[in-house]
Simulated assay, not measured.
Amino acid sequence: MTLGPVYDSNGSVSGWTEADRLYSANGEVIGWLRDGAVYSLGGAHVGWHERGQFRDAAGCVVAWAQDALGGPNKPRKPGEPHRPALGSTPIRPSFSRRMGRIAFLPHWSERTWESYLH
């Protein structure tokens, strides 16, 4: 799997994703992807990943990947982002039960990538 940038509502790189791992902007694992669900590093369900968008518990978009479809209007991205050196992968936690699914909204979340996953 390829390391891919994750952009915030301003089009800045706020993190990275590769396979089932979510990274901070500086390359540390801070969360997990599992069957369309987003989990914190400790295994708490914090939202969803669908159609290239990371959504919070309210259904708003926190961040997006290059292949994102739908959702709020995306800003222009700067040039090719610098890929960080990746930290070691921690042991996967026991994942919590998923929240009930809600309607996805075409709005930006007030959460940042880091606060979303902590």
Rank of each mutant, 00 (worst) to 15 (best):
D35L: 04
P72F: 12
E50I: 15
I102Q: 12
P72I: 09
S40V: 06
V46A: 02
G43F: 08
M1C: 10
N73S: 11
H45N: 13
E18N: 07
A103E: 12
L33E: 11
G71M: 13
V29L: 01
N73D: 15
W32G: 02
R55Y: 07
T112S: 15
L33W: 07
Q53D: 13
G36E: 05
V62Q: 05
W16T: 01
A19W: 15
G42I: 04
G71E: 06
N10E: 07
A57D: 14
G47R: 07
A65C: 06
F54K: 00
C60G: 00
L41A: 11
D56A: 06
F95W: 10
V13M: 03
T17N: 11
L3D: 09
T89M: 11
M1Q: 08
H45P: 14
T112G: 08
Y7K: 04
S109R: 01
G43S: 12
E28G: 04
D35N: 06
T89I: 15
G52Y: 04
A19P: 00
G36K: 01
C60H: 04
D35C: 00
E18L: 05
W16A: 06
K77T: 11
W48A: 01
N10C: 09
R97E: 11
E18A: 08
A57C: 09
A68K: 00
V62G: 02
R83A: 13
S14D: 03
V61L: 02
V46T: 10
S96Y: 10
S94F: 10
Y116S: 09
S12H: 04
P90C: 10
T17S: 13
